[in-house]
Design a protein around this nucleic acid. Structure first.
Lengths: 198, 198, 198, 198
DNA sequence: CATGAATGAGCGTTCATTCAT
DNA sequence: AATGAATGAACGCTCATTCAT
């Protein structure tokens, strides 16, 4: 009677979950399709039924991860408080997220490496950062409007902030003992926002 | 006995040159030892005589590249001009270097990706960034001493600057049209240094 | 109970039609069951409902094709005219058929290749050619009876003619520009029949 | 001192020998590269060092087999005796060869099947049969010159003979009990040559 | 030091077949 | 009868590394 429920979204998530875990553990290159098969509890045929290749899984995972990151940023726009307060809160949250999803952060740099060779990946990241900077720029513009910041170029500041976040993640990733998110994150962003004072 | 000139250094450089070109073109994973063999003009046996494995070549190349980067920074310490002037000059030079060695930048992110899994690589990068931050910190300290900056924590600023540089390279790498080194580099660093004014 | 019309024959033909098209295009090996599914407009389950395997489809198609060929030959027996006239008419018709069903001819050789390994296929072809030769032999016997040919061994001539036909198809198949059915067919058969003159 | 002797020809033959045996036993499709590896006594890497793919081995084998067949035919041109005698002798020899290399004959039809899809293979076979027919045509022309045959078109006869040979091999291949090379070969060719009498 | 033919474990992908619905 | 998601054994090919010369 009932038409079989569509499990395809569920399956895809099942596969991406498994892929995320395996890639985080072994990296794109050392991870075997069989590892993902085992981790997902599905069969190899099923993996290939939903994703055409290992690369397709990598790309799918990339979209999922960056979409998540984008969502977090977007909530800032409508939130309460001064822009500075909101950016500092976001900074803390970013640290929490990365610390929690340590595995994910180790994949992120593989995406950037892949981007050098894969046009599609490069385009995706381009689009992502374009939106990311635009969102931050709107926040900065808000700050300028409210008299919180002096009349700087919002886009320039947005790129600077985006760069700062990415760079901090990288340094933290390489040396977690030397770079403490709790203090360094707020300090760095604070330093930058200090330069924006009217 | 015979005073045959030591070609060992020359050979190693020949191999690393070839590896740099090939890795830049194809990435670590897609580059074959045979590609490096062809590019270097040496034989496969000779490659393995000087480097025990593909990984050893990757690591060797990493040291060479990062050592170069470190050298550029060190020259700042003894140079003339205000700290701000020197940092801005360095920023411009960094942009020139990356634009010139475009291939190298695409490898850099592979190193970070590798770092996640390779203890040795991670240790090397850790050490590199430690020194990098220390060098920048000394510059900042100079600036504070001279009254150019207010009494901030030099280490915090150094980490912030290092993060900013890495992040800018990343953003530029992903979207060269949107991120113009010429203006964005100076602007970002300038913005940060503005926050340090006494 | 309900006198639902038996679609079973129709379905089988639908599948064999599709299989013929796909095999002609791709060959037995490169053709996928999914290709036949798509071409037939049926579902995969339905294919397997009517044919137990890919091999069964191949065998089914073989029977259909060779049965067609046999039918054409049989009409010769009761036809009017001298045996020579009838054989030459058949030769022309054969050429027309192959030219029309070009795809089929490319499958024929796959059947012969399969015959080497598949007992069932070999037996089928054996039986086919036995009947084929017998039919031709009866025709030749008719010619001898009527004084059209000298008293040769009808079986030997039948095998020779059968071989000639198969060989011509092969040569035409490999090089259609060099072997023109229109002339070569009649000429070859004519040459052979010349040797049978009383 | 001595430069290592070039074993590449030897290796290639070693591989083609093994491939011939395996393909004859299992057919192109069912034969695994590992079967050829085992049969050849070489390693898989070595197979791929000398042949780029399974297809390359198939093609290589095809050239070798057909080249052999061509050689046998060529010896006829300069031989003694009437053309009829020589052709009949060749017919017997063909039968012997096929009976001896039974495995090879089962591959031949796979080549024809492959030719339908592979341009290169088709071109090779085209060229082969073109030369084959030309050689036979020269023989027939000799016979006409000497007054052994009437003034027929040598090319037409050559194609007819070539077709006859191929067809006989096919019939013999499908039903060895019904088609006896010893008698049928000579009889068929004899019958055709009878038609050429002045 | 230098060479390059040889190795073989290992991987991504395929696809005929099944079976719960 | 009909469907199509699910299965998993199997295969062609790769490529870092070795070692006899």
């Amino acid at each position: 009677m009932s038409p079989r429920p569509d499990v395809s979204e569920e399956r895809k998530n099942q596969i991406l979950d498994a892929a995320g875990a395996v890639f985080g553990r072994l990296g794109f290159h050392d991870a075997r399709m069989d590892d993902i098969v085992r981790e997902s509890g599905l069969s190899k045929g099923t993996l290939y039924w939903y994703f055409t290749s290992k690369d397709a899984i990598i790309t799918g995972l990339m979209q999922r991860i960056f979409d998540l990151g984008m969502g977090a940023l977007r909530t800032l726009e409508g939130a309460d408080g001064t822009v500075r307060e909101r950016l500092l809160a976001y900074t803390r949250r970013l640290g929490d997220d990365f610390q929690r999803l340590s595995a994910v952060s180790s994949i992120a740099f593989e995406f950037y490496a892949v981007a050098a060779r894969h046009k599609t990946v490069r385009h995706f990241l381009k689009e992502y950062f374009t939106q990311y900077r635009a969102t931050v720029a709107r926040l900065i513009a808000q700050g300028i409007e409210r008299g919180e910041f002096r009349a700087v170029d919002a886009d320039t500041v947005a790129t600077t902030l985006a760069a700062l976040y990415e760079g901090l993640v990288l340094l933290w990733f390489v040396d977690r003992e030397a770079v403490h998110w709790d203090t360094q994150g707020s300090d760095s962003v604070g330093l930058l926002l200090d330069g924006l004072r009217p």
